[in-house]
Structures are given as structure tokens and as C-alpha cells.
Write a protein that binds this DNA or RNA. Structure first.
Lengths: 230, 230
DNA sequence: GCAATAGTGTCTTTGAGACAGTATTGA
DNA sequence: TCAATACTGTCTCAAAGACACTATTGC
């Protein structure tokens, strides 16, 4: 029965987001091969049936191979499929969203793929395939989830203060949040903990308590994004 | 580059839910072909590159061809993918959730496929592939969305009373809901409207106002499920 | 002391649930 | 008139936001 139907292209794409100067940016790379060789696009690639254990695994591999980045948060976004999105024919892209702290990018080893470029999601260049819609859906998902979850902590570095975390929420949501209710919410979500005796010094004002992710929410590898407060 | 990789099976599966005697039921059919020929499973099939315009379109076609049902609500759920879920090899299933009123099933023409069987989601038989997880995720999605949206209206017939709609919500959510806040919420969602002068007669009590979906929320065909109060 | 930001106590406002009342039917 | 359910007005309670106050630093 499978022979009745022409081969369908099966790929994964990754929308990797980070916060630069208070604005969400997405990682783009110049494509190494046709179609659209040399054009800026989302990192993506074919599923490797020999090595990938599932779609998230494939997305994590593609991200690692092309950019050297291992994201602490990786979640399936949706399938984008149809006859027109890829000039080669009917294709399926299993799109994923990943989050990383800008700070963590400084430790990334030399990438195997093209030099990554960060573009603000509010001013994207023209993108091939349906990558513009994919990015839009990813941003929408992150904004929606940030309203009730602790997702934005994955945009912070290892150590952060609550005022910093609040600024991250405000940047993602695009609106100010109430300080008191923000702290109440973060407290009851229970995903971060104060680092005993550690404070952010430097300013001409009272130093802020440093926090970190609780152990149960730290991931060296990719996670599904479900049921983890994300 | 595509030749580097073995063919990946690309299918769609549909979790069609309805409410029977106050309990969520899922439509299953005996499979017509191997693998698992003759075993009860979700209706599913290959993507047809020649005719399907996207994944939801493929799901609607599969559902229509195999069961004769055209659902007023169809939404992409997630991709289930991996080497172990199908004995034929690495496979991708683009799973969808669909909702239909039990009442609407009576008007369904003779199905081209096997006789559909409705099984309660709380007591599923053993299912092939990863269909059990797919059903579980579908039910979880419907429950979650029902908490804040008008999704359950698609489990009602064309005309319904608010007490009937409330009972549907309670069946889906598995818990009683407050009558006053329920009516406030339905009112502000703005997806239903009273049918002027029409009441549900019959009981030895005050008749209830009949309601229907507002025109903007009625769909003869499948919809994406996003941004429509669903 | 003063400016600046961190952190907290508490009042107000808003929305959800509880409860009890009125409305309308068939018997 | 009574039982039964539809519908509605209003009180109570809990969560969220507003505001103001204290805390701690560098200058």
C-alpha cells in the first residue's frame, strides 16, 4: 500500500528563540543546499530513521549538528504539511520550539553548519518555505504559555534575580506585569529557588537575591515540554 | 539528499470523540489491512500527495472515506513519530482530534470502511501502534480546552438548551460546574445565541430556551480549530 | 542623608462560586 | 396547589492588581 503513494518529504525544523536586548530573536542560518541554497532559514533537516528515536530527538540532533546548541527546552509545536510549502513536492515539517538563554550561547562550540544569525521576530527577513508562519506560531505558543507557566525561565541564565526574571516575562508578553502578583505566582509555581547567601551586587541600591531553577526542572538534554511547568 | 534516507511512513490518524450516555466515546474500526489486520484501531491512512492540501485535509478525507462522517470540528493534535510504533519501520502519524454530536451520527450515510464501533475512552480495548497514547492525549486536549473555551458545543446537536450544554461540559470535564458562572461564561464567549421563541417542551416544568451556534461558528467542513472559540 | 532599586504588607477591585429567590410548565 | 426544572439577583470568597511602606546598597 505504501508503494501506491509517492515519497513524502519528512523533515524537522527548529524555532530557537532567545532574548537579546529585551526582544525575542530567532536563530536563522543560510541554507547549505537546494532548494533556497544560501537563503536564511530555520535550521532543519531530514529525519534520520537510523538514529532518531522520535521527532523531538530528531529536532535536538538537527539543532546540535547545525548550530552546536543544546537547548534546555525543546517542545513539539505542530506539523506543517502540504503540496506547496516545498518546491520538491508534498512535504511534512515537524516544527519544534526551543528556548535558550543568550548567556548560554557564549559557551557554544564552533558550529558545524553555517554561521547562525539572530533576527528579531518582530522584523523578520523574507523566509523560504512557510518558515514565517512557523515562527509566528512558535512565538504565539511561547506567549500563551508564558501567561500561566514558568516557561520564560529557560530564557534566563543559570543564576538570575526576580527583577531580571520579571523583565524577561515582560519582554515575552509585551506588557508590564504586576510585581506583587508576579512574585506570588513564581512562588506558587515552585520552579525556582533562592541561592543561599548569593546576591546580585553592583548597583547603587539594595542587592537582589539570586535564584536558580530547582533541580527537578533542570535538563541537560531536550525535554518534551509537557508536565514540567514549562 | 532525500535518497540518503529510507522512506518514512507518513499517515494521519483521527481521534473522533462523541458523547454517549454522558461519557466520552472514541470511534474505532477494524483494520482492513496489515499490520494488525482485523484489529480495532483509530481510523487512519496514508497522506495522498495528489489530493490532500494539508494535514487537516488529509484527516478529514480519511475520516470521510472510512466512516462517512464529516465532523464540524477537526484540529491537529500532534505528531507521533518513531521507529517502534509501527512494525513496518520509522513512521510519522499526524494525529487529529475531531468532535461530533451523537445526534449527527444518525444522518451518516453507509460507511465505505468497516462498521464503526464506539468505545468509552475510560475503558479502551487493547489498541495497536501507540493509539492508546494518542487517544489519551486527545482526551487531555479536549478537557483542557473545555476549561476555557466553547469547544464542547461541537458535541451538542444543532439545537440545544443551556442545561443540556452544561451537562455536556460536566461530562467532558468530569466534575460539576457552577450554574451561574457557567451561564456568565457562555454569555461572554458569545458563540451561541437563543433561537427566538423556541423552547424545549415536554417536561413537567418550565421549558428551557433553545440555543444554536452563531453563524460565524458553524462549519460544514473541517476547521483548523484555532481562533474560533474552539 | 539621598537616590535608586529590592522586597513586603495591605487595601481595593474583579471574577468565580454559593445560595436563595422567582418563573413556568404538567399533573 | 404541588413538584420539578429554568432562570436570575445577590452575597461571599478568593485571586489579582494598586499602592505604599520598609530594606539595603553606593555615593
Amino acid at each position: 500500500m505504501s508503494a501506491d503513494h509517492p515519497t513524502i518529504l519528512c523533515t524537522v525544523d527548529v524555532v530557537l528563540l532567545t532574548l537579546i536586548d529585551g526582544a525575542l530573536h530567532v536563530l536563522l542560518q543560510k541554507r547549505a543546499a537546494d532548494p533556497f541554497s544560501g537563503v536564511l532559514a530555520l535550521p532543519g533537516g531530514y529525519v534520520h530513521a537510523q538514529e532518531d528515536r522520535d521527532a523531538a530527538d530528531a529536532a535536538a540532533r538537527v539543532l546540535r549538528e547545525k548550530t552546536g546548541i543544546v537547548s534546555p527546552y525543546l517542545e513539539q509545536l505542530a506539523c506543517f504539511a502540504g503540496p506547496g510549502r516545498d518546491p520538491r513536492g508534498w512535504s511534512v515539517s515537524i516544527a519544534h520550539v526551543a528556548l535558550v538563554a543568550e548567556e548560554a550561547l557564549r559557551a557554544v562550540p564552533a558550529a558545524a553548519g553555517a554561521e547562525p544569525q539572530w533576527k528579531p521576530v518582530a522584523r523578520l527577513p523574507v523566509l523560504p518555505f512557510d518558515h514565517r508562519q512557523i515562527v509566528a506560531r512558535a512565538v504565539e505558543r511561547v506567549r500563551t504559555k508564558s501567561q500561566y507557566s514558568s516557561l520564560p525561565v529557560y530564557l534566563c541564565g543559570e543564576r538570575f534575580t526576580l527583577p531580571q526574571l520579571q523583565a524577561v516575562y515582560e519582554a515575552v508578553l509585551g506588557e508590564p506585569v504586576n510585581k506583587v502578583s508576579f512574585r506570588r505566582k513564581i512562588d506558587e509555581l515552585g520552579v525556582v529557588e533562592p541561592i543561599e547567601g548569593e546576591f546580585e551586587a553592583g548597583g547603587a541600591h539594595r542587592p537582589a537575591q539570586l535564584y536558580r531553577l530547582r533541580r527537578a526542572f533542570r535538563h541537560a538534554l531536550s525535554v518534551s515540554g509537557r508536565g514540567l511547568g514549562g
